[in-house]
């Protein structure tokens, strides 16, 4: 098991390198405004905004076709960042797109996975590895939490698990002090 996990890890690392290279090779000259908007979007690629991914949504915003409050993963902070970038007023998230949720990652119940590869075809960031008829695994580090793999799974063996708090992600909170008006 350990060896398998290590092998998958190695593969993931190698493909990461390849992809990085691919990104450099295939980088296309784009509209700078679209680039800037795209850089603010969370890149979850979930399609909840009604577009086929973050970049198409960025293009739609740049073209004035879409409002800035349609991306649930970006949430209120994302809307604020877009508003600042575009010199507009922030507004609440459009409830028609969805609701802001804590970050989650997909986990495949490996006992029940039948190796159908449907989830692999759905995953926009190639975060799932596995061959046909073999058990599949989500590379948690690469999963954006878009949930696109849930619906295609014929045996419902994929679940979204919230990120467990850990000392590497833990943050000091905003000081909870009550400032008294001068005594």
């Amino acid at each position: 098991m350990i060896i398998a996990v290590m092998a998958l890890g190695l593969l993931a690392g190698a493909s990461g390198l390849l992809l990085g290279f691919a990104a450099i090779r295939f980088e296309v000259e784009g509209d700078p405004i679209v680039e800037q908007i795209d850089a603010v979007l969370p890149q979850t690629q979930c399609g909840q905004c009604g577009y086929a991914g973050c970049r198409p949504y960025a293009e739609a915003i740049a073209a004035g076709e879409a409002d800035i409050n349609l991306c649930p993963p970006g949430g209120q902070n994302g809307i604020a960042a877009l508003a600042e970038l575009l010199g507009r007023d922030p507004k609440p998230l459009d409830p028609a797109s969805g609701v802001e949720k804590p970050k989650m990652a997909a986990v495949i119940d490996e006992q029940n996975c039948i190796g159908c590869t449907l989830c692999i075809q759905a995953c926009p960031v190639d975060a799932i590895v596995g061959a046909a008829k073999h058990m599949h695994t989500v590379i948690a580090r690469e999963c954006t939490g878009c949930e696109l793999c849930l619906a295609p799974c014929p045996v419902d063996c994929i679940h979204m698990i919230p990120f467990a708090p850990s000392i590497t992600t833990w943050k000091w909170t905003y000081p909870a002090v009550e400032v008294k008006a001068a005594a």
Binding site: L11, I114, C116, I128, V129, H134
Partner: peptide, 26 residues
């Protein structure tokens, strides 16, 4: 299938038994 698909990897975990058999591919 994904580019990360370890088709030729000898270390790929064994196929899950029984359930996987006979399921239509792809």
């Amino acid at each position: 299938v994904a580019s990360t698909n370890p088709h030729s990897d000898p270390l790929t975990p064994a196929p899950s038994p029984a359930k996987g058999e006979g399921h239509p591919e792809g």
